[in-house]
Structure formats: structure tokens, C-alpha cells
């Protein structure tokens, strides 16, 4: 029984079916990301409306660390590459290789968090705290929520790597990968809004 499709269980046997042709786990992930888009959308649109209403925020935005943000963008883009490779491995049913690529992704995700942590502590010691202004409140909230998504992604990928290593549940590689791509893509929107638009 292919793990990529739905098994319908009845008293007379098991039939496999997916009316849309899309595996249920992938379909569900798309719905989840649809909801997530609206969460980040709400945050970012609120931020942009605030930014338009408060030209003085541009001054605050001068203090965000563009280089660090850029390095982190590169790290996440690199990690995307390994997710894609893991997916290709999973399609070849090479669970061990997929697990290896996932763990590299996890390591890059951890590197992102460590760098982000240094950036936070640098900013806080410079007096750029969440209380300084609404701009910084948005900065910490948006990057914080994004960071929490990275944490969730790391946990999910680690769990997926464990089963993939044994060659089981390989469809999860793709599902978790879609999530990871989404989280990375959010950073590629957050980065210009908070770091580049000075």
C-alpha cells in the first residue's frame, strides 16, 4: 500500500483513494499554510499601515542590522536547497540520504536562531528594546513569531528525519519540506520590510 495516498478502511478490505489526486497530508498542509499566510499577512499589513502613518519609524529602521539579516536570508535559502534534495531522496525511497539532508537543514535552522539570538542581545544592549517604540514592538513580534515557526520547523524536521532514516513515512519529508519552504519565504518578505526599507 503506497503511503502517499489515502487508505480507506472498511470491513471488507482496504481501498486506496484520493479524489483530488493530491495526497491528504499535502492538501492539509496547503490549507494550514493558507491560514498561516493570513496570520503573517495580518501582522505585516498592520506593520505597513503603521509605517505609512509614522514616517519617523524610518529613523528607527536605520538601526536594524541589515548584514546580519542578509546572512540569515542566505542561510535559510541554503537550507531550502537541502530540503529539496531531501525530497528528491524521499522520492527515490532513499530514506537515509533524506534524513542526512534534513539534518543539515536542521543545523542551518539552528544557525539562523543562534545568529538571531546574537542580533537580539546586541540590539537590546543598545537600548533598542520592545518598549522603545511601536516599530521595535513590531520588529520583535514579527521576527519572534517567525522564529517560533523556525523552532516548530526544526522539531518537525527532526521527527521526520528519525522516521525517514528507517525508510518509513517518507511522504512526511515532502509535507514538512513545504512547511519549511513557507517559513523561509516569510523571512524573504520580512527581511526587506524590516531591514532594507530604511
Amino acid at each position: 500500500m503506497s503511503a502517499l495516498t489515502n487508505d480507506m478502511r472498511t470491513a471488507t478490505g482496504v481501498i486506496t483513494r484520493s479524489n483530488t489526486g493530491i495526497p491528504s497530508s499535502r492538501l492539509a498542509m496547503w490549507f494550514l499554510l493558507g491560514g498561516e499566510v493570513l496570520i503573517f499577512g495580518g501582522l505585516l499589513v498592520s506593520y505597513m499601515m503603521g509605517r505609512l502613518a509614522h514616517p519617523e519609524w524610518a529613523e528607527e529602521a536605520h538601526h536594524t542590522a541589515t548584514t546580519i539579516g542578509f546572512i540569515n536570508a542566505i542561510i535559510l535559502l541554503t537550507s531550502d536547497l537541502f530540503v529539496v534534495m531531501a525530497h528528491a531522496d524521499a522520492q527515490r525511497k532513499d530514506g537515509a540520504s533524506a534524513a542526512k539532508n534534513i539534518m543539515i537543514t536542521v543545523a542551518l535552522g539552528l544557525a539562523f536562531l543562534v545568529i538571531k539570538g546574537f542580533e537580539y542581545s546586541h540590539e537590546i544592549s543598545a537600548g533598542l528594546t520592545i518598549h522603545k517604540s511601536v516599530f521595535w514592538a513590531y520588529y520583535y513580534l514579527i521576527t519572534g513569531i517567525h522564529g517560533s515557526h523556525i523552532v516548530v520547523g526544526i522539531i518537525a524536521l527532526t521527527l521526520v528525519a528519525r522516521t525517514a532514516k528507517r525508510g518509513e513515512q517518507l511522504q512526511r519529508v515532502e509535507t514538512a519540506g513545504i512547511y519549511w519552504h513557507f517559513v523561509d519565504m516569510v523571512w524573504l518578505i520580512v527581511f526587506p520590510l524590516l531591514y532594507i526599507a530604511k
Binding site: I39, F40, L43, I130, H131, L141
Partner: peptide, 25 residues
């Protein structure tokens, strides 16, 4: 529901932050 609740989730997080951390969203 799935497509409308997102902005309010964002709003709820901002609200909680205003209440508990003292931000001023």
C-alpha cells in the same frame, strides 16, 4: 474561517503583548 482568522490571531498576539509586556500596538 481558515482564511479570515489569521489577522485576528495576529491581533490577539499583539493584544496579549500590549497587556503583558507593555508594548503599545
Amino acid at each position: 474561517f481558515a482564511l479570515s482568522v489569521g489577522p485576528l490571531v495576529a491581533g490577539a498576539i499583539m493584544m496579549l503583548s500590549d497587556r503583558m509586556v507593555g508594548t503599545g500596538f
